[in-house]
Nucleic acid binder design. Structure first.
Length: 105
DNA sequence: TGGTTGACGACAT
DNA sequence: CATGTCGCCAACC
């Protein structure tokens, strides 16, 4: 299992995303740091691209905005609002308030 | 094999 | 605050 191979890293990213509690969000940068900084924020996107059973809607960019339309425009925002996340007039959320603070192992 | 793209971030100007 | 540049890793052509 190549330690540097993306396989395990991807799984790690998936694991972290699954840990994000309802009503909270994390940024790509945070995930990048969580996996040890071995994956650039861009690579995180690739990891989530396989969004299979992950709460991918809880992953937003550093500005607290949604950068992806996914397959269904507006889906992510709708899902988050359903979890109690409030969007501002700019279509962004208050990261200061909704950002999830993970506990490192 | 090599170059480009992409669900990004941080910093400089 | 807006724009431009670099860094970053993986997938795609």
């Amino acid at each position: 299992m190549r330690a540097k191979s993306a396989g395990s890293i991807f799984a790690l990213v998936h694991a972290w995303v699954k840990k994000v509690p309802r009503g909270k969000v994390v940024t790509y940068g945070q995930l990048s740091d969580l996996v040890g900084g071995r994956l650039s924020p861009l690579a995180i996107g690739w990891a989530l691209r396989a969004k299979q059973d992950l709460p991918w809607q809880r992953v937003v960019n550093a500005k607290g905005g949604i950068s992806t339309d996914g397959d269904v425009p507006g889906l992510q925002r709708r899902l988050l609002e359903k979890e109690g996340v409030r969007f501002g007039p700019d279509g962004r959320i208050d990261l200061d308030r909704y950002r999830w603070h993970p506990r490192r192992l």
